[in-house]
């Protein structure tokens, strides 16, 4: 009986591990989508609303999903209190703080970091150009992420379950 319960536990936990790994493949495209929406809102705020960066960050941060929104909210906060921080430094700092909570990878970080360098420091047309460039990059990454999701999401789920099953069979 105990053996049976133990086998069941091994099976369940192995499936959970597989499911956990597959989740990161689901989350990344969702968050990428949110980041894309955020950048498009930022473009509207900057190019049409002429909203100061700090307020624009705040507005955008409130309207997109939590993991991505936190990035902008804390950048807005840093800009407000740390008068010595530049826009770039604030965004970089916010990214360092919140990156682990997101499903993003190095490529996204590079896109955002290069956007941070120019954000707020040129006229409207130039801002628009850079924002659109970042959006294009992220679109590419989003497609890639979706392809990965199709490929690996199911695979890791089954792998977890089957791995567990294998362990159980070997134990018996």
């Amino acid at each position: 009986m105990i053996k049976l319960i133990g086998a069941l536990m091994v099976l369940v936990s192995a499936s959970m591990v597989g499911w956990q790994i597959s989740r990161t493949y689901v989350k990344r495209p969702v968050q990428l989508r949110a980041l894309l929406v955020a950048l498009q809102m930022l473009e509207t705020e900057i190019v049409y609303g002429l909203t100061p960066l700090q307020r624009a960050f705040f507005k955008v941060g409130q309207r997109v999903n939590k993991e991505v929104g936190n990035l902008f909210l804390s950048a807005a906060e840093l800009l407000e209190q740390g008068r010595a921080l530049s826009a770039e430094e604030s965004l970089q700092k916010a990214m360092m703080r919140h990156w682990p909570q997101t499903a993003f990878r190095k490529q996204e970080q590079e896109v955002l970091a290069s956007l941070a360098q120019v954000l707020g420091s040129s006229d409207r047309e130039d801002q628009q150009k850079h924002l659109r460039l970042a959006v294009t990059h992220l679109r590419g990454l989003e497609e890639e992420a979706r392809a990965e999701q199709d490929k690996y999401e199911k695979m890791y789920k089954s792998l977890g379950f089957l791995g567990g099953l294998l362990a159980v069979i070997l134990m018996f």
Binding site: L53, S86, A87, G120, D123, Q127
Partner: peptide, 16 residues
């Protein structure tokens, strides 16, 4: 650069 940043609240585009 720092003064311009402060004056424009890091948003030079808003000062066109």
């Amino acid at each position: 650069v720092k003064l311009l940043n402060q004056v424009s609240q890091h948003s030079l585009y808003a000062l066109e």
